[in-house]
């Protein structure tokens, strides 16, 4: 095999359906374990109801308006928070990233503010907004803002300086330079920021509900727990996890789509 590019005869591993089948078996195994543990009395069934009961309760929830109201509230805070954070972080990231002066002078402040945990703002949020959705928004925006900002700054830092100078020498305006040179480079970084931010936003939307009581799945879980509706609490947690999985899948799908458009437009492979 002289050239590495020559296709090596692929050794047959498992058939293509094997991995999904094993994954499904894994899920079944996990549910079975969850079913058995309370049934054989390893854990008190009052504290951990069997999987079947929880799944039944979750299905029952699907028919109720309260559940969907909570989902809507959570997703509303999630979407508005992520949206505001993404827009403001992108604008600021572009402005700061394109100016060496601003980049230099904001670096220490950004590095100091970024690791501050957004949950530190919980008391402030309660003080300012009480249990309204604004409380959740404050936490979500603060947490997501840094995720997106950092990625946009990385992206602007990655812009080819020769391309930038070329654009400048051809008399491109500031806005034109952003549109034609910076945005195409920053886009993949921006998408990474959005994907990370989407997960973080859900965490904080749930946290706000759980701790502050702002409307949504988080506060439903807290209420179920305090009211002793344990099966329903688990059903809501299950739904929250599935929501998380869906958000992850959607974020990855959007990222892939945008980036495939991006590579076809730029005519090269994103590294």
């Amino acid at each position: 095999m002289a050239t590495p590019k020559r296709g090596k005869p692929r050794r047959t591993g498992d058939p293509p359906w094997m991995a999904p089948a094993l994954g499904a078996a894994g899920i079944m195994g996990f549910l079975l374990l969850w079913e058995m543990v309370p049934r054989v009395g390893m854990v008190d069934g009052r504290y951990l109801p069997p999987a079947s009961e929880v799944i039944l309760a979750a299905i029952e929830n699907l028919g109720g308006g309260d559940f969907w109201q909570a989902v809507t509230d959570t997703m509303q805070a999630w979407a508005i928070g992520l949206g505001i954070a993404a827009v403001s972080a992108t604008v600021l990231g572009l402005v700061i990233g394109m100016s060496p002066f601003l980049k230099r002078y904001t670096h220490s402040t950004i590095e100091f503010l970024r690791p501050i945990p957004s949950v530190a703002l919980i008391p402030l949020a309660v003080l300012l907004f009480g249990i309204g959705m604004e409380s959740a928004l404050l936490l979500i925006i603060y947490a997501c803002f840094w995720q997106v900002l950092i990625q946009v700054l990385y992206g602007v830092g990655d812009v080819d300086s020769v391309a930038m100078q070329t654009a400048q020498s051809y008399g491109f305006s500031y806005v034109q330079r952003i549109r034609d040179v910076v945005v195409p480079t920053v886009l993949p970084y921006f998408m990474t920021g959005i994907r990370l931010g989407a997960a973080v936003a859900l965490i904080l939307a749930i946290t706000a509900g759980l701790v502050i009581g702002s409307p949504g799945l988080g506060s439903s879980i807290a209420r179920a727990q305090q009211g002793g509706a344990i099966t329903n609490m688990y059903a809501l947690i299950l739904a929250t996890g599935i929501l998380g999985v869906l958000i992850n899948l959607a974020a990855r799908a959007v990222e892939k789509r945008v980036l495939s458009w991006h590579t076809s437009v730029r005519g090269e492979l994103a590294a």
Partner: peptide
């Protein structure tokens, strides 16, 4: 994908 804070009540 499960938001970790929901583990607290559990």
């Amino acid at each position: 994908a499960l938001p970790p804070p929901v583990l607290i009540p559990v």
